[in-house]
Design a protein around this nucleic acid. Sequence first.
DNA 1: TACAATCTGTTGCACGCACAACTATAACAC
DNA 2: GTGTTATAGTTGTGCGTGCAACAGATTGTA
Lengths: 160, 160
Amino acid sequence: MSATTSPTRRGKQLDELELGAWRGFLRTHAALSRQLDAELIAAHGLPLSTYEVLLFLADSPDGQMRMSDLADSVLLSRSGLTRLVDRLVRDELVERRACPGDARGMNAVITDAGRARFAEARKTHLDGVRRRYLDHLSDEERELLAGIWDRMSQGAMPAC
Amino acid sequence: MSATTSPTRRGKQLDELELGAWRGFLRTHAALSRQLDAELIAAHGLPLSTYEVLLFLADSPDGQMRMSDLADSVLLSRSGLTRLVDRLVRDELVERRACPGDARGMNAVITDAGRARFAEARKTHLDGVRRRYLDHLSDEERELLAGIWDRMSQGAMPAC
DNA sequence: TACAATCTGTTGCACGCACAACTATAACAC
DNA sequence: GTGTTATAGTTGTGCGTGCAACAGATTGTA
């Protein structure tokens, strides 16, 4: 179940199998994220990055999160999140609220309109994720993939 | 081996397993592409997008490709590729050459300097891909993944 | 208390990309 | 031939993002 590769042939080109496992990964991600993003924009005017923010806010206890925590969650730089939240505030899907107990901090809070919009978008998105990804996998494959990703993010993260 | 999911529960949230298989995929891709890009820039001043272009050119018969074919290969818009090749020409890693037999077309041609630069970068990149991705997989897992990606890009592509 | 070091979020700036509009060439119809 | 349609590549423009620099608040130390 764990990595059992023969001593890696450093610098040598990838063989057929390695190539399929690696470039297929890249191709699949590119295709999926493009399609899901386009789908979400077409149906609800929400890009995927926005959807992610609403997702984390909607699923958090009080519908709010600290800016920096949110940035980490959606894998965005702090400045990137500042701008993204700017747009969400403009569209009245999110509000900024001073963080009680720490005058430096700000909380992003999802509004009722934001929740409504997100609930609609979630249907579309879940449907897309299933149809384009999950439905192509058997139960065993899903389990295996979940394990692989888990293993990788543990191994890869602390290295940088 | 093929998809055997019970009739998808449309709209319902993802269960634990589905979540792991899906969000892990996203997280892993984000982390890997960030790290590999940063690594390549630090070591050779080449971003990943540039590396991809040089890869396709270096591996093509005469070290040259039509602009539009190249754009499709590296998953970039045509305008995006035009600008990217502009930069490569400025850095003298690639040249533009009129396409014989079609006065509309242009070929991007890798230069000697481009080949040299790419050969260096390739070592770094292959090493990174192995260390961060392939080495975490057993042979069976690599085989399974290659199959999954293949199945998915066939199913997902024509749908859009 | 005072002062340095750290942390939070925002802003200036530059970059890379996509979309749409455009020019030039090619392919096809008649 | 002429006219129409399709294709190739470039350019104008706007958007989303990261990095570096910054102001304000907090924590730690003397």
